[in-house]
């Protein structure tokens, strides 16, 4: 930030610029809706009026909670599998050279595009959606755990070895905590990706969920509901990200690594 920008920023209260940005976006939305005059773009006011109807509806709330449950479970499974794999890759060249090509091949594949195939195996229920969420959230967690484990200072590990610590407990008690700041950077991206794959999986296999409401409304040309659901999902993303940042600061406050910007193209 330049000195001039800092001075201009200091004159404002910290919460004000984001608020102004949101208001500006809403104003553009409102103006566009009136200019385009198409049913496909309801105005902002109408969309916000739709929100209480969705959030007050038992069935819709149940759908949203169902989505969140799947997402949380999928993300948890992804972390539980990816962190050990990434750490093992970081500490063993053999493991890294075995797994790296697989990661490179799967990296550009949109995970939600695998949904139709997975549905052939696992049906349209929870299992398929969970698997897609796990796949979607895993890569950044594996990658960052790998980088984190690779970057652990060799002398730190030597210091633990001199104390008589064995290989397995070094991985758990030295490599894992030392790589944790980097792992959490990957988790932050993983959370956003699991939200995205969660919604997309429900678009393809419609049964329940936030994505189900959204895409059903789209089919029925209920555009206020579509836009309101986009708002709900966006808000969920923000809440999850803020909550995660709080948790991260509490977990790795000892780290002096600079905060990474969490926004990633999906």
């Amino acid at each position: 930030m330049t000195a001039a920008a800092t001075r201009a920023g200091a004159a404002l209260r910290p919460g004000l610029p984001p608020l102004l940005a949101c208001l500006g976006l809403l104003a553009c939305w409102q103006a566009l809706a009136h200019l385009l005059t198409t049913g496909g773009m309801p105005d902002a006011v109408a969309t916000f009026r739709e929100l209480p109807a969705i959030l007050g509806d038992q069935e819709a709330l149940g759908d949203i909670l169902d989505s969140l449950r799947r997402m949380a479970l999928g993300f948890a499974i992804a972390v539980a599998l990816s962190v050990p794999l990434g750490l093992a890759m970081g500490r063993s060249r053999l493991v890294a050279s075995l797994v790296n090509p697989l990661l490179m091949v799967s990296y550009p594949v949109p995970k939600a595009a695998l949904m139709p195939i997975i549905m052939l195996w696992l049906g349209v229920g929870d299992a398929s959606k969970l698997l897609v969420i796990v796949l979607g959230a895993s890569l950044p967690v594996i990658y960052h755990a790998y980088q984190g484990a690779r970057a652990v200072e060799e002398k730190m590990i030597w210091s633990a070895r001199a104390m008589g610590m064995s290989g397995a407990s070094r991985l758990l008690r030295i490599v894992l905590p030392a790589a944790l700041p980097e792992i959490l950077v990957g988790c932050r991206t993983g959370i956003v990706l699991s939200l995205i794959t969660m919604v997309t999986s429900e678009m393809i296999a419609r049964q329940t969920g936030a994505g189900n409401i959204l895409f059903n409304a789209l089919d029925m040309a209920q555009y206020e509901t579509v836009y309101a659901m986009i708002l709900v999902i966006g808000a969920l993303g923000i809440v999850l990200d803020v909550a995660f940042e709080r948790a991260r600061a509490a977990l790795v406050g000892w780290s002096d690594e600079p905060d990474a910007i969490g926004v990633t193209a999906a």
């Binding site: 200072e153 002398k155 730190m156 210091s159 944790l180 780290s255 002096d256």
Partner: peptide, 12 residues
């Protein structure tokens, strides 16, 4: 017991 130039403390 080693002591390294890089300190190699456990930062957590």
């Amino acid at each position: 017991g080693p002591v390294f130039q890089e300190f190699a403390l456990f930062p957590w």
